[in-house]
């Protein structure tokens, strides 16, 4: 049978960070450390270890886990913002990385200026943004605020604006890879969330491979074909949502 080539391949990928403790930053510490070679590697911290993943084209992978379990780091690594320190990551095609925390929004600019700024950051030129501008404003339902500055917006409005602009400023109609980092968890209300999910479904139907991190287990269960449960940077379980989610809930309640 014909097997489509995976668009994302991770092989034993890992990411480490150097913990910059305050004492380590001081000049005195650096001088002392320069002469003594011990404990130089002590403050390393592996945010992710040994992640192997190659989802089928068009599949939806959910990422669950506690805060600090490595979900965002994994997505940022696939998006190319972080480089892996071990293993390898290969991606093919256009990547869209969505987060719910108002990525790239400048509070001192108006909504209109922000749309053009984000559009440009995503690689569009002015003409291409002109064409999409009306649609973005309409989708965000912020028609009356076009010329207001962002610092006066509520966090829900910012998250709506950020999502609408990013999702509608796609370079091509169908991106190959869609990475969603709690994009719908922060601030947006239910009706917008449903609308946004519809939009994402559209992209999935267009053939995108999706990886989404979320704390909203109902959404994960509904959409994902496979769930990756991360804990302290390592995979606890990788399986169907119906198998992983109940176990994850049980584990979380136990700790509580």
């Amino acid at each position: 049978m014909f097997e489509p080539k995976p668009q994302i391949t991770l092989q034993k990928a890992g990411k480490k960070f150097n913990l910059n403790l305050a004492r380590k930053e001081s000049a005195l510490f650096r001088c002392l450390n320069f002469f003594s070679s011990k404990d130089r590697n002590k403050d390393e911290f592996w945010a992710l270890r040994n992640i192997t993943l190659n989802p089928r084209k068009g599949s939806i992978v959910g990422l669950i886990g506690k805060n600090g379990s490595g979900k965002s780091t994994l997505l940022k690594m696939i998006a190319g913002i972080y480089q892996p320190d071990e293993g390898m990551i290969k991606t093919e095609g256009e990547i869209v990385y969505l987060t719910g925390f108002g990525q790239g929004i400048m509070p001192k600019l108006t909504m209109k200026e922000n749309i053009y700024l984000i559009g440009t950051l995503l690689g569009l030129n002015k003409k291409e943004i002109d064409e999409k501008y009306e649609e973005i404003v309409e989708f965000s339902e912020l028609k009356n605020y076009e010329n207001s500055k962002i610092y006066q917006f509520s966090s829900g409005m910012v998250s709506r604006l950020s999502f609408s602009t990013t999702i509608l400023c796609l370079k091509r109609k169908n991106p190959e890879i869609l990475l969603i980092d709690e994009a719908l968890d922060a601030g947006a209300d239910l009706s917008f969330k449903n609308k946004a999910l519809e939009k994402i479904e559209e992209l999935i139907k267009g053939g995108a491979t999706v990886i989404m991190a979320s704390h909203d287990l109902a959404t994960i269960e509904k959409y994902c074909d496979m769930v990756l449960w991360l804990e302290k940077g390592e995979v606890v379980k990788k399986s169907l949502p119906a198998e992983v989610i109940p176990e994850y809930i049980k584990e979380s309640q136990k700790n509580y």
């Binding site: 913002i81 990385y97 987060t99 990525q103 995503l122």
Partner: peptide, 9 residues
């Protein structure tokens, strides 16, 4: 940093 950390520009 808000650009560098959230968009691959």
């Amino acid at each position: 940093s808000h650009f560098i950390k959230s968009i691959n520009i």
